[in-house]
């Protein structure tokens, strides 16, 4: 943290990661325009990790976890936060070295810090996905998740994708030496209008915490869940040939509905209206949607080698 190479703001860390992964040849994508719980849900990861076609992408993904809301008071917990996601298929042999290069790029020198790969197998019950890998520790703190995808949407990944996920706020707080997320400089502290993370997100954290926990209309959400589920099934069942005789299966629009159902489930969970036993059933329903979307996607052009 004493390195002269040290970034000065949250956004500088993001910009350096963008530049670094662009230099490594990744397509730098923009966030997916839907509410998701993690960067993995972006179709650039979930769907593109399926099938034989090579792929390399990096992007920031705003992520929402309604149950983690703490009205902006907890120094480390947010219901809305950012993940940085890198996905490369097939996983290159030097992926660990590439990753370590990204740490150097944001000012974490592995010769001064203690960087460790500690076993952590990843599983997403809602996506029917799992992989093996590690959580990466820097001086005892988890700074990234590193996973070799083995299965997604119930399909074996061939070839295997390597996925890197950085929890940006936590990583940045460490690099910048900040104790409370709301105190973190978002833009350069020397800018004419310096803005902290709190300037931008404290009020939204409060508002969403209240809505997530107390106000969201659960009857409406239950209905939305059913609607998304039904629409997903309908899209998947649609005849692949359209009225003009073109063959256009619609894996992505169907997957959007699966994402929607997943987020609505998270909201209902935060409202405390889903019992322990029902929980498993809801997760199973979302997984069924994700699997069905994956089944369709692997038949499409984007999945062919």
């Amino acid at each position: 943290m004493t390195s002269p190479n040290r970034p000065r703001s949250f956004q500088e860390i993001i910009l350096r990661l963008q530049a670094y992964w662009a230099e490594q040849g990744c397509a730098v994508l923009q966030p997916y325009d839907m509410e998701v719980g993690a960067g993995t849900f972006h179709p650039a990861t979930t769907l593109r990790s399926l099938g034989g076609k090579s792929w390399a992408a990096a992007y920031v993904q705003p992520s929402r976890r309604p149950t983690d809301g703490r009205y902006g008071e907890n120094p480390n917990r947010l219901q809305h936060y950012y993940q940085y996601q890198v996905i490369i298929k097939p996983s290159p042999a030097n992926l660990q070295d590439l990753y370590l290069g990204s740490l150097r790029a944001i000012g974490l020198d592995p010769l001064v810090h203690d960087v460790r790969f500690v076993e952590d197998d990843w599983e997403s019950p809602t996506l029917g996905a799992w992989g093996l890998g590690w959580e990466v520790w820097c001086d005892g703190m988890e700074v990234s998740q590193f996973t070799y995808f083995q299965q997604v949407g119930g399909h074996d990944c061939r070839p295997v994708s390597g996925e890197l996920t950085y929890g940006l706020e936590r990583l940045a707080m460490y690099v910048l030496g900040v104790e409370h997320v709301m105190d973190m400089p978002f833009n350069d502290p020397g800018a004419p209008i310096p803005l902290t993370y709190g300037d931008i997100f404290r009020q939204t954290e409060q508002e969403y915490s209240r809505w997530n926990f107390d106000q969201a209309d659960t009857d409406m959400l239950f209905q939305h869940f059913k609607d998304a589920e039904a629409e997903c099934a309908r899209i998947l069942a649609a005849e692949p040939v359209d009225g003009a005789g073109r063959t256009i299966p619609m894996a992505h629009p169907a997957y959007d509905q699966a994402i929607k159902a997943s987020h609505i489930f998270n909201l209902l969970d935060a409202r405390g209206v889903i019992s322990v036993t029902e929980r498993q059933a809801y997760i199973g329903r979302v997984r069924a949607l994700a699997k069905a979307c994956a089944d369709l996607f692997v038949t499409t052009e984007a999945a062919q080698a």
């Binding site: 097939p90 197998d121 992989g131 093996l132 070799y148 061939r158 070839p159 295997v160 390597g162």
Partner: peptide, 9 residues
């Protein structure tokens, strides 16, 4: 106890 594939192999 658990093993994995990687890359294209």
């Amino acid at each position: 106890p658990k093993s994995m594939r990687w890359g294209a192999g």
